[in-house]
């Protein structure tokens, strides 16, 4: 593994930490690798000394009392409440900042994120609606009268819940990646500089591509 590959992977694994913390950690490791190279080791050797990257990241996170196993558990209620928490705190923060720093450009960033979220809600409903209807038809064919009514009712509720959870998850993801461009939007508002919109968009897409949820963890 090269130095860059190592640092990139480590950075990704530590993404749950604050930016400052991540930078601090990555800088330190980068410096250590450089020193080892100075002393004559190859890049590969220097990186190899750290052992397995995933395990290293896990050990580092333990220092922050972060239970990395949490991300793998199928605990719906916990995940849902933490998602709702994220959305709520984000919205609170946004509207709080909004009233302090009303400004056209930053405002349009917020508006576009909100519009995207609404459009996503509408779009996502369609596949779930289709699945729901297909299920209804199937059940009405297979089941006798009274039972059909009950089961169809339950099925519909299930589909609605499924849609809700899915939509919330997608929006939170959007909100999280949008957070970066929004933050930059507020930053530029505070500094009142004329950062061209391109740079803000570039940050957005950069954050988007690096924000891949690590489903393959362990």
């Amino acid at each position: 593994m090269t130095k860059q590959e190592f640092l990139t992977r480590l950075k990704m694994k530590l993404s749950v930490l604050s930016t400052d913390e991540i930078t601090d950690i990555i800088d330190e490791y980068s410096e250590i690798i450089d020193e080892k190279i100075n002393e004559g080791k190859t890049e590969q050797q220097a990186v190899h000394d750290f052992g397995n990257v995933d395990e290293l990241a896990r050990e580092i996170l333990k220092a922050y009392k972060i239970d990395d196993q949490f991300t793998e558990k199928e605990d719906w209620s916990r995940q849902l409440s933490s998602i709702l928490n994220d959305v709520a705190s984000f919205l609170t923060r946004i509207f709080g900042d909004l009233f302090e720093h009303m400004n056209e450009r930053g405002f349009s960033n917020i508006i576009s994120t909100i519009i995207t979220a609404i459009l996503l809600c509408i779009f996502l409903r369609i596949p779930f609606w289709i699945i729901e209807v297909l299920g209804d038809i199937l059940l009405s064919i297979l089941l006798p009268g009274l039972l059909e009514g009950l089961v169809v009712g339950a099925w519909n509720i299930l589909c609605d819940i499924g849609y809700l959870v899915f939509a919330i998850g997608v929006i939170v993801n959007l909100v999280k990646t949008g957070e970066v461009s929004l933050k930059k939007g507020f930053h530029s508002m505070k500094q009142e500089d004329n950062t061209p919109k391109q740079i803000i968009d570039a940050d957005y897409t950069e954050k988007e591509s690096s924000e891949n949820p690590d489903d393959s963890d362990l």
Binding site: I32, D49, G51, L56, E59, I60, K62, A63, Y64
Partner: peptide
């Protein structure tokens, strides 16, 4: 010991 165990330890002690 493996270096990889020392650095996280430093981080923990600092925290």
């Amino acid at each position: 010991v493996n270096e990889g165990t020392i650095y996280p330890l430093l981080k923990r002690m600092t925290n």
